[in-house]
């Protein structure tokens, strides 16, 4: 291809960022608004009724706490994966990336257990508005986790071939994937107290 797009691996001299980084931040901005709308819905529903249940009464706080720790840990591992590349250490990058993906699967497994408990008791979004918003927000968050797994697995597997040819660009990709992953963590940091602890 003769088309050459500049600022893929080096930052733009004026803006100081690469295309991908600006792109991923714009994407995260839209994600903020998406989850913002859902939080707005949650607050609306909650303000509208007197008998809104306490999350700690009907949801599993220990499991959610475990998941919080798992996600926070995965956030560190993904940023460490990026730092390892910065230190030219591909094998350490691999270790951290594997850890990240492992954490994502643990998170999903715990989530599945939680959902399973609810379904066993015949609880669904139709049960009450609390459960409705609980399932929608955690479900959408879960989809984001799955998306993250796909991206991270690609970058760990076939995507990592780029390290040999364009190390700068590959490091940039890991940083962007990391930004997304931190955002998923960030959403959970708010979800956890709002749904489970109040």
């Amino acid at each position: 291809m003769s088309v050459q797009i500049p600022y893929i691996d080096e930052p733009h001299p004026v803006t100081g960022v690469t295309n991908a980084k600006l792109g991923v931040w714009l994407f995260l901005a839209s994600e903020v608004m998406l989850f913002g709308a859902l939080f707005s819905a949650l607050i609306t529903l909650r303000l509208g009724v007197n008998d809104w249940p306490h999350g700690y009464d009907i949801l599993n706080v220990p499991l959610a706490t475990l998941n919080t720790v798992v996600l926070i840990f995965s956030s560190v591992t993904v940023v460490m994966a990026w730092a390892s590349l910065k230190m030219q250490n591909l094998s350490r990058f691999r270790t951290y990336m594997v850890l990240t993906i492992l954490c994502s699967f643990i998170f999903l497994a715990v989530k599945a257990v939680e959902y399973g408990h609810k379904f066993e008791h015949g609880i669904s979004p139709a049960t009450s508005n609390f459960y409705a918003i609980y399932f929608v927000i955690t479900g959408l968050h879960g989809l984001h986790i799955i998306g993250g797994i796909i991206v991270n697995a690609y970058l760990l597997g076939p995507g990592s071939r780029m390290w040999k040819t364009q190390p700068e660009r590959f490091t940039g990709r890991i940083e962007c994937a990391g930004l997304y992953w931190h955002f998923v963590d960030l959403v959970w940091i708010f979800l956890f107290p709002i749904l489970y602890l109040l």
């Binding site: 714009l26 901005a29 839209s30 994600e31 608004m33 998406l34 913002g36 709308a37 707005s40 929608v136």
Partner: peptide, 13 residues
């Protein structure tokens, strides 16, 4: 970018 996501959220709801 910033106005469409709330509708996406609402559509999901």
């Amino acid at each position: 970018l910033l106005a469409f996501p709330p509708l996406e959220g609402a559509a999901v709801l």
